[in-house]
Structures are given as C-alpha cells and as structure tokens.
Design a protein around this nucleic acid. Structure first.
Lengths: 128, 128
DNA sequence: CCGCATCCAATTCGATACTG
DNA sequence: CAGTATCGAATTGGATGCGG
C-alpha cells in the first residue's frame, strides 16, 4: 500500500506521503480544520474554540495550513484589526478522509482504552 | 464535527479523539501498519522494510501499537529467537480510513507542493 | 485584536554499547 | 535476532513581553 504500483517501492512515494501526513498528524491541525469545516473564523475565535492551544501553536498551525494551501488568511485592516481564516477547496477535500478517521477514532476509542488498560496492568504485573 | 451531537462540545470527545489520533499521527505508526497490511512480519524484516526507522523507534512504535490493541506480538523461543508482528482485527479496520488518507495525500501532493513553493517565495520576497 | 520574538523547560530521537 | 539502557543533540512547546 501507499503505492500505485504492485511492486514494493519503499522510499520514493512513502517519504513524500509521510511529509504530507505530518501536517495532518500534528496535534492541532485536524482540530483547526474541523472547526473551519462549518464556517470561516477569526483568530481569537479559533483560539477559544480549539481550547488548549496556545497562541504560539495556533499561529504556527495556521501558518503551516496556509503554506500547504489548505486555508486562506484574509486580513481586514480595521481598528481593531480582523483576520479571518477559511478552508480552501483543497482543505475541504481533506476534510473527507479526516472525518472518516475521526469516525474510526470515535467508534473504536473504548476498545483502544480497554486494550491500553489491559496492556498496562500486564506490564506492572511483570515488573513487580 | 468530531462530535455526534449537534451542539458544540469542545473538550470531552475531542480530547479523547486527539489522544487516539496521536498514535496514527506519529511518523512511523502508519508506515508500520501499512507494511503489516499484507502479512505478518518479523522485527528486522520490518526494520529493513520501513527504512529510515531506528531500532529504538521501531521498538517504541511497535510497543505503542501493541498497547493499543492494533497489532499482536508473537514470540517463538528458538535460537535465534523469532518475533512476529501481525495486525489484529482492530488494526485491519484502521487500515481502511488510513488508506483513504494515504490516497488523499498521494492525489494532492503535487498541489500541496506547489502551494508550498508559492508561499515560500512570497515570504522571501517580503523579507528582502 | 493579531501575532512575532525571546527565553527556557520538557520531550523526542538517533547513536552507541551491551544482554538473552 | 530481538531487544534494553544510556547519553547528548535536536526539536517542540508554553510563558511572557512587545509591536502593528
């Protein structure tokens, strides 16, 4: 998998894909994308909405998403200034597989948590 | 999104989901899962296959996946010892949305790369 | 209101060396 | 072969204070 060809092609495609997935993988990107799924939002609005994200990380996340062409950043030079973030078409297309993954996580979270507890209890039993 | 309810429920579900997605998000997990999609594999076989992963990181990744119930670890006490890793049913179910995401990445990678170059050139133009 | 810069703590990761 | 242990380097992230 991760390859159109039947053959096992380790480096080329995989590395590139990993690079793209790195954006999705980080802690905040998908949450921000999820929030922007409904409508465009302002900076502090997003900040409050995502909850737990620091100003710094939100800034970095938004820059990254903008760089990848997933969101647009629109500055309105008023006083106070206003900056709106909105998903691009590309960003909205990403929303589809991300929602699938979110659904998986939501559906299987209980199973995973049970597995974790079981694993952990086995480990502590070994050590003692 | 990321919520079954219509209302905006920021903390509860999202944090838990983030926690689960953190496993998928890290650099090696999805690659390992992808490799195990076809068949079970031994430790060093995986190590060579994933390519770029250090022994340490592969061990940590495999432990994490095992802890979450996504793979099984089977030890055969021979000389030399033999350890096989295999996807569980849960792991195979994760393979589905992950493949979708991989397809997205594969399909849109050129677009993303163009966006990145464009963004970067704008930035350097500003600075100078 | 938006966001950058700096400092500093914590975590992550690779390299290396050593065990059953 | 399949790990564990340790160490230093690099990356990451929060807190704070300043600037447009």
């Amino acid at each position: 998998m991760f390859d159109t060809d039947t053959a096992h092609r380790p480096t080329n495609e995989c590395l590139k894909i990993t690079e793209v997935l790195a954006r999705v993988g980080d802690k905040w990107s998908i949450l921000v994308i999820g929030r922007l799924g409904d409508r465009s939002m302002r900076f502090n609005e997003l900040r409050r909405s995502v909850e737990g994200v620091s100003q710094r990380m939100l800034t970095l996340t938004l820059r990254g998403l903008e760089r990848d062409g997933l969101i647009t950043r629109t500055v309105t030079s008023s006083i106070p200034p206003r900056v709106d973030y909105e998903l691009t078409g590309l960003g909205r297309s990403l929303l589809v597989p991300v929602e699938q993954l979110a659904r998986w996580a939501q559906e299987h979270r209980p199973t995973v948590e049970i597995a974790r507890r079981e694993f952990d209890s086995k480990m502590t039993a070994d050590t003692v």
